[in-house]
């Protein structure tokens, strides 16, 4: 409630007192610097993807996207996300439940563990799985004996993506659930709600928008991961190529228009992610005003 009131107070035009706000010159200089920075660093790169992709005409653009290798890369990217996102969503909800609804020791340690994949270089993330499952690893001889291929094959790509995307859902909903406290859940339990019902009927409605954003962010990263996947994939065309890896191959073969065409697909994915984020934030604001 206090937040809402303050929000209205700051948006209202107030008579400016001397020295309390910056002078108009300073104000517009800062705004110009900020806008210029974002324009050069973000808007121009996004624009260049589209112009490069369409440089040689729409036919080249669509040919690149409809190409057999692009389609198989798209398929593998979708499969990877389809496995990694649900698993990490379930994990994210479970770990957020434990952290936000209970008191226990070593909670900070657990939080740090969840963040680890953020801090590790994607290349190292790929490397650890090569060391674990590669031909020279402890498991290597056993795996080859049983004809199981993980590295330079699809399972490796999925595992590396799982590792990279561990924190996304958890990080998004933990603060949200901590903020909401435990009174509603306790009330539900004392009124007779059982186990999963408490989560489904009481907690979920409160966190659904944050959860949705976490999932969509996790998905964007799962589909867009490059470094880790690059290490474990082996770059076998049509077999172990995801969309970002396909971009690299096309680019290194100097097929720039095709590379940018595929890149534009991934860019659309990023923009959709941000639109969902905007909707989620707008929903939360509406929810706060109604409270």
């Amino acid at each position: 409630m206090a937040g809402v009131v303050r929000y209205h107070a700051t948006t209202k035009k107030q008579t400016r007192e001397k020295h309390i706000d910056e002078s108009l010159v300073v104000r517009w200089t800062l705004i110009s610097i900020a806008v210029l920075f974002i324009t050069i660093m973000i808007i121009l790169p996004l624009t260049v993807v589209m112009t490069e992709a369409l440089k040689k005409g729409a036919s080249v653009y669509f040919a690149a996207i409809a190409h057999e290798d692009a389609m198989s890369a798209l398929r593998l990217t979708l499969i990877t996300a389809f496995i990694a996102v649900p698993l990490n969503t379930v994990f994210g909800v479970l770990v957020a439940w434990a952290i936000s609804k209970f008191k226990f020791r070593r909670k900070q340690l657990l939080l740090t563990l969840i963040d680890l994949p953020f801090a590790v270089s994607p290349v190292i993330a790929g490397l650890v799985f090569v060391l674990m499952f590669g031909a020279q690893s402890y498991l290597g001889p056993w795996l080859s004996e049983h004809d199981i291929k993980i590295i330079f094959a699809v399972p490796g790509i999925i595992i590396a993506t799982l590792f990279i995307t561990v924190p996304f859902v958890a990080r998004e909903i933990i603060p949200l659930m901590q903020q909401q406290g435990i009174t509603e859940e306790e009330a539900a339990v004392s009124l007779g709600a059982k186990g999963f019902q408490v989560f489904w009927r009481v907690t979920l409605p409160n966190i659904k928008w944050g959860l949705l954003y976490g999932i969509i962010l996790c998905n964007a990263r799962a589909m867009g991961e490059f470094g880790a996947v690059s290490v474990v994939s082996g770059h076998i065309r049509g077999r172990t190529n995801t969309l970002p890896l396909h971009v690299e191959i096309l680019y290194n073969e100097y097929q720039f228009s095709a590379a940018f065409a595929i890149a534009s697909l991934l860019m659309v994915l990023a923009i959709i992610t941000l639109i969902v984020k905007a909707i989620v934030e707008w929903r939360e604001e509406v929810q706060n005003i109604h409270l």
Partner: peptide, 30 residues
Amino acid sequence: IDALVDIPFALPTAVAGIALTALYAKNGWI
């Protein structure tokens, strides 16, 4: 502008890489 700040989180790094290269190469816009 506020929404665009998050683009680097959501955009695959390979896409950012080739886009920035195209911008800053000798014949690029910048």
